[in-house]
């Protein structure tokens, strides 16, 4: 299991398009991956779950993956969020 924290800095938070980028990437990996905000867990492979977290600028997010490809996926998602989805 890999778990890393990240602070979301993009002004608009994670709205529909960034959420889709996260889900699209997560779907490429067989592992289970969760986004956790304020102890609410959301499946990163489900766009509705990700949107449901209502992640705004400044939110602290934990990404936890478990299974095949976990390290690469978590690193990729952290990078994506840190670079403001401009990858």
């Amino acid at each position: 299991m890999v778990e890393k924290d990240v602070i979301v800095n993009s002004d608009a938070g994670i709205h529909a398009r960034p959420a889709m980028m996260i889900v699209r990437e997560a779907m490429k990996y067989p592992c289970e991956v969760m986004l956790i905000k304020d102890s609410v867990e959301a499946d990163a492979k489900s766009i509705m779950s990700v949107l449901g977290l209502a992640i705004i600028s400044g939110s602290k997010l934990t990404i936890r993956a478990h299974g095949e490809g976990e390290t690469e996926l978590v690193d990729f998602l952290i990078n994506l969020i840190e670079k403001d989805f401009r990858v």
Binding site: A16, S46, I47, M48, L51, G52, A54
Partner: peptide, 13 residues
């Protein structure tokens, strides 16, 4: 916020 929305692959939300 998600209230009564559903995501269907191929159509979207």
């Amino acid at each position: 916020i998600l209230k009564h929305h559903i995501e269907i692959r191929g159509i979207g939300i």
